[in-house]
Design a protein around this nucleic acid. Structure first.
Length: 553
RNA sequence: UGGGUUAUGGUGUAAUGGUAACACAACAGAUUUUGAUUCUGUCUUUCUAGGUUCGAAUCCUAGUAACCCAACCA
């Protein structure tokens, strides 16, 4: 009955650990540093970590890895919490690495007492030099042999603020000739006289990632600590510290981070796009951030479905943006309300329809009957899409052109009799005659036409601003192209249509609602929308078979 | 020229010594009052070379390629 879906390699590990009795229950964690907004790559990690907790009856913590006060802000903490919740996940505990600063300090003291850590006076440059290179062994620092007592005093003095930034560091005493560079006496603590967003000025020494992350995992009894591939070299140190400290043995597992075509995924690059004004903010609808995608109209369900489909493995990958669009359309098709909106309006006049007459026509709201119907007003003067008309019909053209017949969605079949142009030669009126016996739902004509187009009544339509988006970059992988990634920014990624016309039912549109503007795509209200001026974002277009046909001709 | 990780269609992901499959993409066709949706079909795959085996994507050997590691970032 239930379809067997194969497990990813992490689920296999979890199932084995559960089956062997190694753990009765699992505990995972999502550990962002609050130094930026979450993006679709984080969504993969969130779905993995929280998904594991859900699937195996375990729990998942949200832990902020806030050990670098100069880069972190509460603004980011707040946005991260909002994004995780919006994605549909609940954490067992909201935790901060900074909550463990005192405990971490005691761990460090423990290492010193075990002669496994020492205070070094060397400068950053000197330490780097003595570290050697991957092919050349490193050399011991002259301070490596300090006594336990001396180290204890010096470390206490570091904490007490007796030294300036960079004057001293605490290092693990491991092996300066290790083939793994991370084992060449890695830094554990550095001095930073900086204000921390949570601990304020209580501390002037801060633990490094390697001395905070694994220890925090251990303190929380995290069973499976899942991170991305670039942390593989850290695992040896992760295990070493846990072993020497003799604390709960959390285990680290690594998977390949998400890469996607036509965008960038590093916080550094995203931050640059924001600060240099290439986009309007972290939640710009073109950004691959969760907040940007949310504003653009993505549903949480579509993002979860995407994360499920891309799988989890250790191989470098580059996912087609089209898979994300597929997941989006798949979800929106099921749930979006159907409405009519004309993006680039041109007048269509029905010459044989009584001037001033209005009919209330019935149109379906959604993909199935459960969505019900609504009334759309019809009259002799309509707005239709400019690109639904051709002065001379192309091959296989099913829409308006002189002599051609089309159905007006939920209304009548009309025949195009002619058109007029303004002084600049732009078509400004399309003249048609309607066939009264073809009224939608009451069609007795037996006629069938190939094309159906959307419309709104000029008298009844509402004006709206519509924003159309295209991919942010012109290159599939801007990060690996020649030169700077910003050279590949698509300058035409935003098109603003100031004066589109939408059907009047949209006056009741809410920010949560998702709409399909018939034949034009999925849309949602933007946060900048006001009752005086509606603003819609196009989330994604509909698949468009005609444009392919047209391009081939 | 050190260490680590990974190689399966155009892109992802499965197959855990026994018929290489699923999804996306692409391409055809059917249905359609959205050129949407839905439905049907087509296309294309095990990095290379040896070996073990009745049988290899999977095991062995040797290559090759890509990515990661020398931040007082995470």
């Amino acid at each position: 009955m239930s379809e067997e879906k194969s497990l990813n390699f992490i689920e296999e590990i979890v199932e084995a650990d559960l089956a062997s009795g190694k753990y009765q229950t699992i505990l995972t964690r999502f550990p962002p540093e609050p130094n930026g907004y979450l993006h679709i790559g984080h969504a993969k990690s969130i779905c993995l970590n929280f998904g594991l907790g859900l699937k195996y009856g375990g729990k998942t913590n949200l832990r902020f890895d806030d050990t670098n006060p100069t880069k972190e802000e509460v603004e980011y903490v707040d946005s991260i919490k909002e994004d995780v919740q919006w994605l549909g996940f609940s954490w067992a505990n909201e935790l901060y690495a900074s909550d463990y600063f005192e405990q971490l300090y005691l761990f460090a003291v423990d290492l010193i007492k075990k002669e496994l850590a020492y205070v070094d006076d060397l400068s950053a440059e000197e330490i780097a030099t003595l570290k050697g290179t991957p092919t050349v062994s490193g050399m011991d620092s002259p301070h490596r042999t300090r006594t336990v007592e001396e180290n204890l005093q010096l470390f206490a003095d570091m904490r007490a603020g007796k030294y300036t930034d960079g004057e001293k560091v605490l290092r693990a005493k491991i092996d300066m000739s290790a083939s793994n560079m991370h084992m060449r006496d890695p830094l554990l603590y550095r001095i930073k006289h900086a204000h921390h967003h949570r601990t304020g000025d209580a501390w002037c020494i801060y633990p490094m990632y390697d001395f905070a992350h694994g220890q925090s995992d251990s303190i929380e009894n995290i069973t499976h600590s899942i991170c991305t591939l670039e942390f593989i070299p850290h695992r040896e140190l992760y295990d070493w510290l846990i072993e020497k400290l003799d604390i709960f043995p959390s285990k680290q597992y690594e998977f390949a981070r998400l890469n996607m075509t036509y965008t960038v995924m590093s916080k550094r690059k995203l931050l640059q796009l924001v600060t240099e004004g290439h986009v309007q903010g972290w939640d710009d609808p073109r950004m691959p951030t969760i907040s940007g995608m949310r504003r653009r109209g993505f549903t949480a369900e579509s993002i979860r479905s995407f994360c499920d489909k891309i799988g989890v493995a250790k191989r470098e990958n580059m996912i087609d943006f089209s898979l994300l669009e597929f997941c989006l359309r798949e979800d929106l098709n099921k749930s979006a309300l159907r409405v009519m909106g004309v993006l680039d309006p041109v007048k269509l006049i029905i010459t044989n329809y009584p001037e001033g007459q209005t009919e209330e026509l019935v149109s379906e709201n959604g993909p199935d009957e459960a969505y019900g119907t609504r009334i759309v007003p019809f009259s002799n003067t309509l707005w239709v899409e400019r690109d639904d008309f051709m002065e001379v019909a192309a091959k296989k053209w099913f829409r308006l052109a002189p002599g051609a017949t089309v159905r007006l969605k939920s209304a009548y079949i009309v025949r195009c009799d002619g058109f007029t142009k303004d002084a600049d030669g732009i078509v400004n009126e399309i003249h048609c005659s309607y066939l009264p016996e073809t009224k939608s739902g009451h069609d007795t004509s037996g006629m069938s036409v190939k094309g159906t187009i959307h419309w709104v009544s000029v008298e009844h339509a509402l004006p709206a601003e519509v924003r159309l988006y295209e991919r942010l970059f012109k290159a599939e992988n801007p990060s690996t192209e020649e030169g700077d990634f910003k050279e590949y920014i698509n300058e035409d990624s935003l098109t603003i249509i100031p004066n589109a016309r939408v059907e009047r039912s949209l006056a009741r549109a809410t920010i949560e609602s998702r709409y399909q503007f018939l034949r034009k795509g999925y849309f949602c209200l933007d946060k900048e929308s006001t009752p005086e001026k509606m603003v819609f974002n196009r989330t994604v277009t509909l698949k468009d078979a005609w444009s392919k046909t047209a391009n081939k001709a």
